[in-house]
Design a protein around this nucleic acid. Structure first.
Length: 447
RNA sequence: GACCCUAUGGUCUAGCGGUUAGGACACCUCCCUUUCACGGAGGUAGCCCGGGUUCGAUUCCCGGUAGGGUCGCCA
């Protein structure tokens, strides 16, 4: 029988990076085994849930490239879904829970208590056979020994998470539950419930948690905890996917950069690591740089244009060849698209803001005649292309008896306002004679 | 407080009784380039502690310690 796995997030308005990895691991297992991935929305908390919150999850998964075989097609709980085991929103499954409670009640496995309905929990220790951790024996804690029974349905009629989760997994035919290790202890409750329904529980695989760099738990307010954050910062989904795979799983042959297709081939449950991992932003950034560098030109332009648009710079109004030429000088230089507007903004504005420290260093009186000479050399260069400009600059330096760097730095500052950026000669070529001479002139006036 | 999981450089990891403990990120040095990146060549840095078992433990067992998790009419 082919495995049926599920990702069952609660729509809280954001998708936790750990949740994203749980989704990824479920997806990988489904694709590796040829099984089915079910997406189920656990929206029992009507007050807190909203369509927008569901949309965050759907968009996040789609961005990562994780498709599901069964589940919602839109964020609307009553909207279209695919799959024949629906509904896939818990808010639409009330009758199921009702029916299941009555079954337990009628068999004396649950009882009413102060308006709530409680489950008669086993007193004996329960063994959780976990595919990642191994057999885990979970006895009752001292507090549980005082009252081992737990609430299935609140006094207001709302069923609790542990109950609906198990009922849905049972009715949706889930064979493998792959989820965060924070659920490991409570799995005893789930197993007991499955047995109460006379069904063998699914196989469990509890994956380690993702922690902050300092080892603390990644909570909602931690920057970097939300997947949306990476989307907004201009990360590439393939970089995020790749990095997430490396957290708690390893291809084992010293491979670091690998595609999802390669991971699908190698991925399996027993190889999942048992210990938590700290999130290393620097390593993600490195992978991001790797993928960014090999981006197809069209996609690079598209993402770059989008990044500028987000900063209020509409490059669509400009000559497309100019924009492409400008962006080409940035390829391989930036890592995330979010840094692009600051990196190459000088191409699309005539208001150059000079780096204050660099001005003190490079816009000094002795550089004024040098910059004037350079301006003249550029003005009379046989052609305004990178090669000619480089030759002109070096020739000028030679005449002045200075190193090329003496001219390079003030020139870059005058034209871009910055101390670093794309190749100087190439950016001069892209900017064109008119802009370059005007900017040097303007800088000269301020020295 | 009870119970559960975990433990290789700063970080992610390979290792599954005998290895000069391997790789990657980060960091440092040098080369390339008179910007910044990229690339190339080196370098610093690790088996949590204590007992066993064994001819021999990073590896197996026990105990500590540390980190994480759970014990809700939250999910």
């Amino acid at each position: 029988m082919k495995p049926r796995v599920r990702f069952a997030p609660s729509p809280t308005g954001y998708l936790h990076i750990g949740g994203a990895r749980t989704a990824l691991f479920n997806w990988l297992y489904a694709r590796h085994t040829g099984g089915t991935l079910v997406l189920r929305i656990e929206d029992t908390d009507a007050a807190r849930n909203s369509q927008e919150a569901v949309d965050v999850i759907l968009n996040g998964l789609r961005w990562l490239g994780l498709d599901w075989d069964e589940g919602p097609l839109t964020p609307d709980a009553t909207g279209p879904c695919k799959g024949d085991r629906g509904p896939y929103f818990q808010s639409q499954r009330k009758e199921n829970y009702q029916r299941r409670v009555e079954a337990l009640l009628s068999r004396g496995l649950a009882y009413e208590h102060e308006g709530a309905i409680k489950f008669k929990m086993t007193r004996e220790p329960i063994t959780i056979p976990d595919l990642v951790v191994g057999d885990v024996v979970r006895p009752l804690t001292d507090r549980e020994q005082l009252d081992p029974d737990w609430v299935l349905v609140r006094s207001d009629g709302q069923p609790v998470f542990h109950f609906v989760n198990v009922v849905d997994d049972l009715e949706m035919g889930i064979t493998h539950v792959i989820r965060g290790e924070d659920h490991l202890s409570n799995t005893a409750k789930h197993i007991a419930l499955f047995r109460a329904f006379g069904v063998e529980p699914p196989k469990y695989a509890h994956i380690p948690l993702i922690l902050n760099g300092d080892g603390s738990k990644m909570s909602k307010r931690d920057k970097g905890a939300s997947l949306t954050n990476y989307l907004d910062e201009g990360f590439l989904p393939e970089a995020v996917d790749n990095y997430l795979c490396l957290l708690g799983w390893s291809p084992k042959d010293n491979l670091e950069k690998l595609s999802l297709a390669e991971v699908i081939e190698r991925f399996d449950l027993p190889q999942i690591l048992r210990h938590n991992a700290k999130f290393d932003f620097e390593k993600l950034l490195w992978l991001q740089g790797e993928y960014c560098r090999e981006l197809a030109p069209d996609r690079f332009y598209e993402l770059a244009v989008h990044a500028f648009a987000k900063k209020g710079v509409d490059t669509n109004k400009l000559d497309v060849n100019y924009v492409k030429a400008a962006l080409d000088t940035c390829r391989g230089k930036i890592k995330t698209f979010a840094e692009l507007p600051a990196y190459a903004g000088f191409y699309f504005t005539d208001t150059i803001e000079y780096d204050v420290e660099a001005v003190k260093k490079d816009f000094v009186p002795e550089n004024k005649p040098r910059l004037e000479k350079l301006r003249d050399a550029f003005a009379h260069a046989p052609a305004f292309d990178a090669g000619s400009l480089e030759a002109a600059l070096k020739e000028t330096a030679k005449i002045l008896g200075v190193k090329a760097g003496v001219l390079v730095h003030p020139c870059r500052l005058a034209v871009t306002g910055k101390t670093s950026g794309p190749s100087l000669y190439h950016l001069l070529q892209v900017l064109g004679k008119e802009r370059v001479l005007a900017r040097i002139e303007k800088a000269l006036a301020g020295i």
